[in-house]
């Protein structure tokens, strides 16, 4: 009981209400932005808005702005998720085909597809490479 006093001031309802209002406004913005054609940037814009919302939740609702140590722990997890995502996408995008290494040629039918709807194998947008060697 040596530390009965709080280390940080308690955030009050006014701040929380303001954060909620900001989150709701951002939700409206993201839905509106999805209706406008920004070409390939639509997904980027949606993810930026989502990240702003997530930051608001983490900083205010989860009190990370008063909690440096736990913030580092959490950002460490997010960092490794980013490594996971970015390096996997590098790898995938530098291949023409995604096939199990024991297959010698592209499959004509995706294993999970219903038989009446043939589906191309996961060959990406690039032309199918001739599976030699």
């Amino acid at each position: 009981m040596e530390h009965t006093a709080h280390q940080h001031p308690i955030t009050g309802p006014k701040v929380y209400a303001a954060v909620l209002a900001a989150l709701l406004v951002l939700t409206v913005i993201t839905v509106t932005a999805a209706g406008v054609d920004f070409g390939p940037y639509n997904t980027v814009i949606a993810l930026i808005i989502a990240t702003i919302k997530a930051s608001l939740v983490a900083l205010f609702f989860m009190h990370l702005r008063h909690d440096k140590f736990d913030a580092i722990v959490f950002l460490g997890g997010v960092f490794f998720l980013a490594v996971f995502l970015i390096f996997t996408l590098f790898d995938i995008n530098s291949r023409h085909t995604i096939l199990p290494s024991n297959l010698k040629e592209p499959v004509k039918e995706f294993p999970g597809a219903p038989l009446n709807k043939p589906v191309q194998p996961s060959t990406g947008t690039a032309p199918v490479a001739v599976p030699g060697k």
Binding site: V73, F74, G76, G77, V78, F80, L81, F84, L85, T88, L89, I92, N93, I98, S122, G124, T125
Partner: peptide, 20 residues
């Protein structure tokens, strides 16, 4: 953090399939 990584696997899978 383990929860983030649990969902992370699904998000990465989603990212790959959507890109392709």
């Amino acid at each position: 953090v383990t929860e983030v990584l649990l969902f992370g696997g699904l998000f990465v899978g989603y990212g790959i399939m959507r890109a392709k």
